[in-house]
Computed example of a mutant assay.
Amino acid sequence: MKKLLIIFILMLSIKGFAQDFYFSGKMNYCTPENSESKKSFETAFIGLNYPKYYGGVTALLLKVVEKDPKFCDAYFMAGYFFRLQEMHKEALALYYIADSLSQNKAPIFKQNLAIQFMRFGKVDKAREKYEEMVKYFPDNPEGYYGIGNTSIVIGDYDKGLENLKQAEEIYKKSGKVKDDVIYMYGMLYTMKEDYEAGLPYLEEAYGTYKNDEGYLSLYSLSLIKVGKTRNDEKMIKKANKMYNKIKNKEGVPDIKKRLTAEFS
């Protein structure tokens, strides 16, 4: 299950539906108690453009929360900088504090906390955060999308598809549907063993994910399953071609067993 998590779940982008505005530095979910805290916080956004200073900016933000312990945004940004430095345990702890202090006002805190939970295999906790997003921010597609994403590991594929549809409808209102959504449909249907339904989505996602081995595993499996059902030699040949592109045949245990049964 953990390999499934690593290969598929972490395809999630940290920057989602409404996060770019937050990272402009023009808003806060918690009010700092002194002006110096606000100035230091704003400095952090400038630091995002200079990786060599990430450590220094993180230290600055930790000083801010020490003096201003209710300033949830400073906790979040400190966690964000820790994540950028691959210090994931520290990021998780600070995201958790930020989310708690924000009192359900910050979808970006919940989303980043959920992704961090998923990184550590705590999918149930991630699901809780995505469900909170749906409850408190029903017009934000990322909560629904996150529930769909966690369904890959939890195994409640129908619930995942239902929530993914909700996410898709909201994405449509704001512009083009993300390629991740198309891929996620194909992924959920394939995991559900509904290969006929999933294959068109995987076909559509090919241009974006053709070099991703997790995608190739799902695509080749769906191709050969549908090809055999239809007795379509051309499709079976294509399935073998896609399968041969996979360098790591061990892959994900759940998928490996199915692939071995079809291609051995």
Rank of each mutant, 00 (worst) to 15 (best):
G121T: 01
I147H: 07
Y130I: 05
M118C: 15
K178Y: 14
I46T: 15
L94A: 00
C72A: 14
Y80M: 03
I152N: 08
S151R: 07
F109P: 03
P107N: 04
E168K: 15
I97P: 06
L161N: 06
Y171R: 14
K135R: 15
E142D: 15
D139Q: 11
I108Y: 06
Q166K: 15
D156S: 09
F41A: 01
E86G: 04
D99M: 08
G56K: 06
V153M: 08
Y145G: 11
K89N: 06
F45A: 07
V57Q: 07
E86H: 13
K67C: 04
S151W: 06
R127P: 05
E169V: 05
K173M: 08
Y157D: 03
D124F: 11
Y136P: 02
Y80A: 01
H88V: 06
A44Y: 15
L84N: 01
G175S: 12
K159I: 11
Q111V: 07
L94N: 09
D180K: 14
E162D: 10
E42Q: 14
E168V: 04
E90I: 03
I97R: 11
K122I: 03
K178W: 15
A78P: 01
V57R: 06
V65E: 04
Y144T: 01
K122N: 12
L61V: 04
L61T: 09
G143P: 12
F76H: 15
S37K: 13
V64E: 04
Y136E: 01
E128G: 02
E142W: 14
M118W: 04
K38S: 07
I170W: 05
K63S: 12
P69K: 02
E128R: 13
G155W: 10
Y75L: 09
I97T: 14
V65Q: 01
Y136D: 01
E162Q: 12
K159T: 12
